[in-house]
């Protein structure tokens, strides 16, 4: 799949912001006053920036409100609801923290749940797609949630918890890379099933339907060189998991330490997310001989 910057930014930042909000809602951090303003501002900033980025790839963003209508079936619609709900439900919690200086479990707990639900919905947009076997697996929501939780834990300066989550995240990343490589074959879609011509023999593309590109090819067919991907995989695990954990465990806890750990984590998260898209193969590629 095309690793569109808008979608990468959207999923990474909104996940981080929502994860952080979840910790705030659960009371891991109990900021107040100006400090709370900054903290909540940061969390909201990430979440909203991410969500806004997601509208960048829309063909007709002015109709975005319509995306709220189909919650019965559409994970994208559900995500729209949960994200707005999260932002709305967490708002009183934030306001109370800023102006009254006390955390509100009444709003915080449901807010935290909604934040994680949002991350889950986002992940399900991808995980539901049978057409992209690499995504179509429990590891997708697990990864998205774990990223949100890890990022949130780092931002919440929960050194121990964050380090533990980092270990989990690292393991899950490695597992998902391994597993992902076999997912396409496991799904069983081949040029033979795509064309129904397998009953005759082995199928190959002789001439594509057009000599230039088209929307499908730009959007869904993206080939990553194996060497490139191996390098990025190492980077993603190193930066998203290993380095933040080490940083948090070795350095004395401070804003600077958190910032450094976060910076590492984000680099890793972007690399992992880029790979999440770039390595995911859509079955439509079979019609273009891209496999």
């Amino acid at each position: 799949m095309h690793p569109a910057p808008s979608v990468i930014v959207f999923t990474v930042l909104s996940g981080l912001g929502l994860g952080f909000l979840a910790y705030l809602g659960l009371g891991f951090l109990r900021p107040s006053g100006v400090y709370a303003f900054l903290i909540y501002g940061l969390a909201y900033g990430f979440a909203v920036a991410g969500l806004l980025a997601s509208t960048l790839h829309l063909g007709n963003p002015q109709r975005a409100l319509r995306a709220f209508t189909q919650w019965r079936t559409s994970w994208l619609s559900r995500e729209a609801w949960t994200s707005v709900a999260t932002l709305l439900v967490m708002a009183p919690a934030a306001l109370l923290a800023i102006f009254a200086g006390f955390p509100s479990a009444t709003f915080g707990f449901p807010g935290a749940l909604l934040a994680l639900a949002t991350v889950f919905c986002t992940s399900m947009i991808y995980a539901q797609l049978k057409t992209v076997p690499r995504w179509n697996h429990w590891t997708t929501p697990a990864l998205f949630l774990l990223f949100a939780l890890t990022g949130g834990a780092i931002l919440s300066a929960q050194a121990g918890l964050a380090a533990a989550l980092c270990v989990l995240l690292g393991l899950l990343l490695i597992f998902s890379y391994r597993l992902g490589d076999g997912r396409f074959a496991e799904r069983g879609s081949t040029m033979e099933t795509a064309t129904g011509l397998g009953r005759i023999g082995k199928v190959r593309l002789y001439e594509p339907p057009h000599t230039g590109t088209n929307y499908l090819m730009r959007e869904m067919i993206h080939l990553v060189a194996r060497k490139h991907s191996a390098r990025l995989r190492v980077i993603s695990v190193l930066f998203a998991a290993v380095l933040p954990a080490v940083t948090l465990l070795i350095l004395p806890l401070s804003v600077a330490t958190v910032a450094l750990a976060l910076a590492f984590h984000l680099i890793g998260a972007f690399a992992a997310r880029w790979l999440f898209f770039a390595e995911a193969e859509h079955v439509v590629g079979l019609y273009y001989g891209a496999r």
Partner: peptide, 20 residues
């Protein structure tokens, strides 16, 4: 009603949808 999110094209296995 279409916002042009492209998700349906992702969901289609056959490459039958193209975003104008």
């Amino acid at each position: 009603a279409c916002i042009g999110c492209g998700l349906c094209a992702w969901a289609c296995p056959y490459g039958a949808r193209e975003l104008d």
